[in-house]
């Protein structure tokens, strides 16, 4: 994946929350706000934003409604003259695809604007849609993320890109969909090791409305993925999407209830992993609010991978259990 030629890092950015982050895993919202602030990136509030709307249901049911509701969210950010930042692959799919379709297809744009005019809004197509992982890679860079780390993590991580962050590849322009590396580089910038595992690019199982409507099918995919991660002996999963996050975290509870299968692998959104490396405590990042709690993981967080940051003067420990930002 190549860096952008133009410098988009100076553009305003608004935070699009979506549904699952604020309403089921608020730790992801909290972590996102903390790490972006620490990196000096300010986020405008997108007041009155709605569901993106959920691609699995809305894109399946009626494309026009999907485009129209998504365009309203885009308009909110347009009126702030800000690009829109998502922390979720589903929101990214809906907003980025809608933005592209409406920019490219005058007929679709006219159709949407006819509806939007009824609420006094108009889609003009002047902003971009960003995803936090893609944004950090392109506009901040793994090197600068690494420079900000004060508590290098000594963790073996199963990186889960999720499908809609990188696909359709032609539209996302993030390089190979079969063997990408940008997310792994950001994970390794925290000191952690991204561990290879079988069929790493496979889906978590949740998308397309499968989690809600055909739960057995969705869980069977999740189970496979968890088995492959477990065989690679990882300390945790790191994802880029609250919906994959929910599928792995809640899914482990469901697999235990239904099949008696226990994995007990902690699940972190990238913002939470980075937050730990920046010295925030698991409590501040809401990691303790996940369903899966594994005491060995918390012990491992106390260990520091200083050898991977030679010659660097690093901060005090991760305020684990202290509930404060270390000095």
């Amino acid at each position: 994946m190549t860096k952008n030629i133009t410098d988009n890092s100076k553009r305003n950015l608004s935070l699009f929350l979506g549904c699952i982050a604020p309403n089921r895993y608020p730790g992801i919202e909290s972590a996102t706000r903390k790490v972006m602030e620490r990196l000096g990136i300010s986020l405008k509030e997108l007041e009155g934003a709605s569901c993106c709307p959920a691609p699995g249901v809305f894109q399946s049911f009626d494309k026009k409604t999907w485009l129209t509701l998504a365009s309203r969210n885009l308009c909110l950010s347009e009126s702030l003259d800000a690009d829109i930042l998502t922390v979720c692959n589903g929101c990214y799919a809906t907003l980025a695809d809608t933005n592209r379709i409406l920019k490219e297809d005058p007929e679709a744009k006219a159709g949407v604007n006819e509806k939007l005019s009824e609420i006094g809004k108009e889609f003009s197509g002047k902003i971009e849609v960003r995803h936090i992982v893609e944004y950090l890679f392109r506009e901040v860079s793994p090197e600068k993320v690494r420079d900000a780390v004060i508590h290098p993590l000594d963790l073996r991580v199963a990186v889960h890109y999720g499908c809609h962050l990188i696909k359709p590849a032609h539209e996302r322009k993030l390089g190979s969909a079969e063997n990408p590396s940008f997310f792994d580089e950001l994970v390794e910038a925290t000191g952690a090791r991204s561990v290879e595992y079988e069929d790493k690019m496979a889906c978590c199982g949740a998308g397309g409305g499968a989690r809600s409507a055909v739960q057995d099918v969705a869980l069977a995919l999740t189970e496979k993925k968890l088995e492959h991660m477990q065989s690679a002996n990882v300390d945790c999963i790191v994802d880029a999407c609250p919906f994959c996050h929910l599928q792995f975290d809640q899914g482990q509870i469901e697999l235990a209830d239904r099949l008696g299968k226990e994995f007990n692998i902690p699940v972190l959104h990238y913002s939470q992993l980075l937050g730990l490396a920046l010295g925030y405590s698991p409590e501040e990042l809401g990691i303790h609010l996940n369903r899966i709690q594994n005491s060995e993981f918390y012990t491992k967080l106390g260990e520091r991978a200083e050898s991977r940051f030679p010659g660097r003067k690093l901060g005090a420990g991760a305020g684990i259990g202290k509930g404060g930002v270390p000095t």
Partner: peptide, 14 residues
């Protein structure tokens, strides 16, 4: 019913 099994992972389309 299979119409609703797909997770839209896009692997096939790619």
């Amino acid at each position: 019913e299979h119409l609703w099994y797909c997770t839209t992972c896009f692997r096939c389309q790619e």
